[in-house]
């Protein structure tokens, strides 16, 4: 997934780090220690999420994803696309090229749109992590609303592009 967008992030981090280092060495070291501590704090959750994602990806072959998004345009197909988008973590950098290919081969626009929306805004398997930062109530509400609103975005997109 090494793409230019992560490099852009690295660029920002390096620039900020250099400025900080020139301004105050000891403060910069404290910052780095804090970064590490905050990271280690959430590491167990991250590892759990990664193993869960690994299981999901191993259990759902990529063909299934392609078939779900590619075939029937019925409501159940759209619902299934939304479920897939909510449950998986695929970088959009990888998702857009796949989505565009599927569209060209006749996939429904609503499925594709709902898949992209849920993929980016609903994080079913990252929920334990989100709860750690935002608490249960906010996390449940945010994911539920994002899921519901993904359908609105998708239907409007489908209607505008019909």
């Amino acid at each position: 997934m090494s793409n230019i967008f992560s490099y852009y992030l690295y660029g920002i981090a390096v620039i900020l780090l250099s400025i900080s280092f020139v301004k105050n060495k000891s403060k910069t070291l404290i910052a780095l220690k804090k970064s590490l501590k905050m990271f280690l704090n959430i590491l167990p959750q991250f590892i759990a999420i990664l193993f869960l994602l690994g299981l999901l990806l191993a259990a759902i072959p990529s063909d299934v994803i392609k078939n779900t998004l590619g075939e029937n345009s019925s409501f159940s197909g759209i619902l299934l696309s939304a479920a897939l988008g909510s449950a998986t973590i695929i970088p959009v950098i990888i998702a857009f090229p796949i989505a565009s290919q599927l569209l060209q081969s006749g996939a429904g626009i609503v499925q594709i749109a709902v898949f992209i929306s849920t993929l980016t805004t609903v994080g079913l398997i990252t929920m334990p992590l989100e709860i750690k930062y935002l608490g249960k109530k906010t996390t449940y509400m945010r994911n539920m609303l994002a899921f519901l609103f993904s359908f609105i975005t998708a239907y409007i997109t489908g209607w505008a592009l019909r």
Partner: peptide
């Protein structure tokens, strides 16, 4: 599954390293 997990672990680390550096700096 283990293969996917290891591959994703590297991707996640790559993505998270600059994010955590930035929030550490923000904190200070």
């Amino acid at each position: 599954s283990i293969e996917f997990t290891l591959k994703n672990f590297m991707n996640f680390l790559f993505m998270l390293a600059p994010v955590f550096i930035c929030i550490g700096l923000m904190d200070v």
